Amino acid sequence: MSPNVIDCLVNVHFGETAKQPEFMRKVRDDYFKGPSSLYEQIELPALLDEMDAHGVTKAILMDNIAKPSMTAREFVTQRPDRFALAMGGINLLRPVASLRELTALTADLPVAYAVVGPSFWGDGQYPPSDAVYYPLYAKCAEIDLPLCVNTGIPGPPIPGEVQNPIHLDRVCVRFPELKLCMIHGADPWWDVAIRMLIKYQNLRLMTSAWSPKRLPEPLLHYMRTRGPGKVIFASDYPVLRQHRVIPEARALDLPPEVLQRYLHDNAEEFFFGTPTTTATTGPATAAEVG
């Protein structure tokens, strides 16, 4: 029997913007070569139908403190059993008001994690090791809220070096209490990301916006050996549709118990605090390291 799925990054807010910025249209046309419907309004019944067809029991919807998504919050209100929120839009240069709002929202809404994209924020001039992020790190650690940080070169034509996962090395050292997840893969720095995952117990990686059949073999090897509990599935719907990426994920050369963790259990444990019976990490044998 195929495992159930938690889709940890779904966008339902694209249709709320009357005119998408040029860089977003370019990433659709030049990078993802997506359909013209990518930025149309998403309706709840259609999303639920696609989720049900592919075993998605829960989806985490992108939201924003500065520009709340009425669509995401309506979906959560109507179906709290199927949806939670990911909260972005934190003002890192004037953080107090944003962090107060984040704390209040986590008390009132099912917020699964906070999110920040270094390339998309501050013109890409602040890597995650910069002190401007420290209030956010401290607050998320204080309220036990996972934080997701974009890693890897982004699709839009904006600066990418700040999303090298090595910038999280110092963060993990200084904030060991922080539940931290790299999202959107880590291309072209996959090897750095894997070494970081081995090194830090509080760190995870999400494969959002990556077609599973395009995931590099070193990552799959790590999942089969030292890291069955460290890698988390997401689609980045509608950039990549569930009807494409979930069958691809189920076709990966992974043992059933590792696939179960990748598609469901790791997210359930990391974002929703539900322990699983399979060990997430552990000492590796010489064969596993190789």
Rank of each mutant, 00 (worst) to 15 (best):
A284K: 05
V116N: 12
R79S: 06
E177V: 04
P216D: 08
T277K: 07
A107Q: 11
T106H: 15
F175A: 08
W190N: 12
L99W: 11
F233K: 08
V289L: 12
C172K: 04
I143V: 06
K33H: 15
E288P: 06
M196P: 13
Y133Q: 09
Q163N: 12
K19N: 12
T71I: 10
G282K: 09
K230Q: 06
D144G: 10
D187K: 07
I183C: 10
A267M: 03
Y31K: 09
G34I: 14
I158K: 02
T17N: 02
I90Q: 08
S119H: 09
N4I: 05
L105R: 04
P118N: 07
K58G: 05
R170T: 05
W121A: 07
H243I: 03
D52A: 14
K139Q: 13
P95N: 09
P95V: 11
F271D: 00
F14M: 10
P247C: 00
V289S: 07
R25Y: 06
V239T: 13
T77E: 15
V258E: 13
G229W: 03
E161W: 02
L85F: 01
K230L: 10
D187P: 01
R79L: 05
M196L: 15
E74I: 03
T285H: 09
Y39P: 01
K179P: 00
A97G: 06
A251L: 02
S211E: 08
V192D: 15
K199T: 07
R244A: 03
D191F: 02
I65P: 00
M1H: 15
L61H: 00
A112Y: 05
T71E: 10
W121M: 14
M70A: 12
D236F: 04
T57M: 03
P146A: 11
D144L: 03
G227M: 03
D30R: 14
S208K: 04
L93Q: 12
F272Y: 11
S98I: 10
G160N: 13
P238Y: 00
V56C: 07
V162A: 10
P275Y: 04
A186S: 07
R82K: 02
Y134S: 13
P128V: 14
K213I: 13
Q125I: 09
A209R: 11
V12Y: 09
V10W: 00
P218I: 00
R241M: 06
S235T: 07
K179W: 02
Y113C: 12
D253Y: 07
H264M: 06
P135G: 11
L197S: 03
P283L: 01
L61G: 01
G117W: 02
G124Y: 06
L178V: 09
G122C: 04
D265P: 05
L168S: 04
G290V: 13
R100D: 15
P159F: 03
D191H: 05
Q260A: 14
P228T: 07
P157S: 13
P275S: 05
N91H: 12
V173I: 14
R195N: 12
P68D: 02
E16L: 12
I143W: 01
P21Y: 04
V12P: 02
P165H: 03
V12F: 08
L85P: 00
Q242M: 08
H264A: 10
E269G: 10
F23I: 09
P95A: 11
N150I: 06
P218T: 01
S119G: 12
Q41E: 14
L215N: 12
I90W: 08
E43N: 13
K139V: 05
V171F: 11
A209K: 08
P159I: 00
A59Q: 08
P228K: 10
L44A: 08
